[in-house]
């Protein structure tokens, strides 16, 4: 099927409040040196009462502005998150109301850290069935709402934030540095789900009125195993999407990977034989913002001039489930 699919607007937003590694030294038995050497993270932005849809709203306004459309011109909203404001209504409906729009199709999707890349696949499907699609894809997480601040192995890893993109079936010369979505490749393996979980409150772990929440209400992770799968899966899906599109690794201008841990990014870069100038890193500033990490990095890379017209950019993500995927965007 022949169709056009452009990313015409980009935006991101993080809460103002910052927690540095030193701030964690007062909470758990850790140190700036320990966190930095094992994760590359120096600080992360933390919600001070802002919700998933609050962050998403700010990121969306930027993306809409760049896309040169009003919220009322949107035909669809896809919200990628596993930390919505509430389970019902979903975060996409809450965002829709904040944007003062209604009577369009909106949905939340949850593929954890892969959420934005999964959303790209849905968005290009929508562009394929409609020549007038204006899809707002926004990935927003208030991960700190599901972080156990007594668990030193996980609490230092995560931050809050949102990244947004407007994806349309049409594009005009007035759009500055729009991207063309070339391809998306998504994968999952449920056999490995136990390695990275937030279980409590799900129907397998139901809530009982008045009962306190346990550790399983928060992110729980087998770090070393996740590390292994993250590196290998992101490498394999990157090779697959490049091969499917007859692209050589050296033709990729910039790789924008999920920002979970500098050691994962470095290991991926080494396997792909990528020079550090061709892999974008901002994990030191934001930590792991799950689904929001790829669109925040993409918007920031573009804003900072790391992406130029004509560049081919590879997005690659990995998350709980396990889910993983890659996308190719030509600017």
């Amino acid at each position: 099927m022949k169709y056009n699919c452009y990313i015409t607007g980009f935006g991101f937003h993080v809460p103002e409040k910052i927690m540095t590694n030193h701030d964690f030294e007062h909470l758990v038995d850790t140190s700036d040196e320990w966190i930095t050497s094992r994760t590359g993270i120096k600080q992360r932005h933390i919600s001070a009462g802002q919700t998933c849809s609050d962050l998403a709203y700010q990121a969306s306004l930027q993306a809409l502005k760049e896309a040169l459309i009003t919220p009322q011109e949107l035909t669809h909203i896809i919200m990628a998150t596993f930390t919505p404001d509430t389970y019902l209504p979903n975060a996409a409906c809450v965002l829709l109301e904040k944007l003062k729009h209604s009577n369009i199709a909106v949905m939340d999707i949850n593929t954890a850290c892969t959420g934005f890349v999964s959303g790209l696949e849905i968005a290009r499907g929508l562009c394929a069935i409609s020549s007038k699609a204006n899809v707002l894809l926004v990935a927003s997480e208030v991960l700190t709402s599901r972080v156990n601040f007594d668990d030193r192995s996980t609490c230092v890893l995560f931050g809050d934030g949102a990244g947004a993109a407007v994806i349309s079936s049409t594009c005009s010369p007035a759009h500055n540095m729009a991207g063309s979505l070339v391809d998306v490749c998504l994968k999952a393996d449920g056999a490995l789900g136990e390695l990275l979980t937030v279980k409590g409150g799900g129907s397998a772990y139901p809530l009982t009125l008045g009962q306190p929440v346990g550790e399983n209400f928060f992110v729980q992770m087998e770090g070393r195993e996740v590390f292994k799968h993250a590196v290998r899966s992101m490498y394999n899906v990157s090779l697959e999407i490049l091969e499917n599109n007859s692209v050589r690794p050296q033709d990729v201008s910039l790789v924008v990977p999920h920002q979970a841990n500098i050691r994962i990014i470095d290991a991926l870069a080494k396997k792909m034989n990528l020079d550090s100038s061709r892999i974008f890193v901002n994990v030191q500033k934001y930590g792991n913002t799950s689904a929001a990490s790829v669109p925040i990095a993409l918007a920031e890379a573009r804003e900072s001039g790391k992406i130029r017209a004509g560049d081919l950019v590879l997005l690659v993500a990995f998350g709980g489930g396990f889910t993983w995927g890659a996308a190719l965007v030509r600017f």
């Binding site: 070393r224 590196v231 290998r232 050691r263």
Partner: peptide
């Protein structure tokens, strides 16, 4: 701990074996 994980990964790939955690 992550150096150890990377060592194990490299050995698994070099010798085509699996070493569980």
């Amino acid at each position: 701990s992550l150096d150890l994980t990377e060592l194990i990964m490299a050995m698994e790939e070099e010798f085509d074996i699996e070493i569980d955690d």
